[in-house]
Computed example of a mutant assay.
Amino acid sequence: MDMTREYQNGAFIAGSETLPALWAAKAAQFREHLGPRARLDLPYGPAPRNRFDLFLPESPPKGLMIFIHGGYWISTDKSLWSHLAAGALARGWACALPGYTLAPEARIAQITSEVESAILAACAEVAGPLVITGHSAGGHLSARMGNPDRSPALQSRLSRIVPISPLAELEPLAETDMQTKLRLDAAEIATESPARHGLTTPAHIWVGGSERPAFLWQARTLSENWNCAWTVDPGTHHFSVIDALESPHSALINTCLDNL
C-alpha cells in the first residue's frame, strides 16, 4: 500500500487548489469585522510562531474554545482559519487559535508542548470552561491534550475535546513522503500517538463521511481505543468538514459547546 497516496487529501477533492486563497480571504474579513475584539499574535514563548490569536464575543465570555490548525505539522498557519471562530463567538464563547513551530524545525513532541503552552496562556486571558478542538494534525494535537501525560494545570481546566479528522496513530505517517520532514522514530510514534494512551476528559471524535479511508480508520481507531463517541459527518470531505465551526447551531458546534 502506498501510504503517501493514502494520506493525500487535495488530490481527491475537486478544486482543492483554490481553497487556501478562499480561507485566507474569509479569515482576513473576519478579523477586520471584529476590530478590537480580535487580539492577534499574543506571545506565549520565544519562537517566531509562539503566538496565538484570541477572538472575543461581544459580552463577557462563557468559556474558551481552542481551535488548532492542521497541515500535517509542516504547513499552514493560524491566520488562515480565523473565521472558524465565528460559531463559538456567536454562542458567547471566546476562541483562541494557537500557532506553533512547524516541522522539520520542530519535531512533533516539541509541537505538542508548544500547543499546551499556548493553551495555558490563552486560559490566563479567559475564565470558564475549556474546550479544545482541532483539525487533522490539529486533531492530533487536540487529542494529545486529553492524554494523561499533560500538565495538571491543563487537565484541571479542560472540559471537553473534539478532535476533527485526527491523526491518532502516527506509525503510518512514517511510511509517507512526509517522513523526510517529520523524522518520526519508534519512540516518538509511541509517545505522540494519542490512540495509544488513555483519556482524562470527555471526548467526541468527528470525521467527514467522504474523507479518505485512512482518516476514517484513524478516527474510528481513536474512538475505539478511548471508548468514546464518534460522528461520521455525511457528505463532508477533509476540507469541508470544519466549515460547520462557522455556524453557532451546527451539529459540530453543538458537540463542542452544549451543556457546558
Rank of each mutant, 00 (worst) to 15 (best):
C95K: 00
C95F: 03
L97A: 15
Y100K: 06
L102V: 10
L102S: 06
P104S: 07
R107S: 15
I108S: 01
T112E: 13
T112D: 11
L120T: 08
A124I: 06
A127R: 12
A127L: 11
G128Q: 10
L130Y: 07
V131R: 01
T133C: 10
T133I: 04
G138C: 04
G139L: 02
G139Y: 01
A143E: 01
R144A: 06
R144M: 15
M145S: 03
M145N: 00
G146V: 03
P148A: 13
D149M: 05
R150I: 14
S151C: 03
A153M: 07
A153S: 14
R157V: 03
R157C: 03
R157K: 15
R160N: 08
R160W: 07
V162R: 00
P163W: 03
I164H: 04
P166R: 12
E169M: 14
E169F: 11
E169G: 05
L170G: 00
E171S: 15
E171M: 09
P172G: 07
Q179S: 11
K181W: 10
L182W: 01
A186Y: 03
A187N: 10
A190I: 06
T191Q: 13
E192L: 05
E192C: 15
S193K: 04
A195E: 09
R196I: 03
G198C: 09
G198M: 11
T200F: 03
T200M: 05
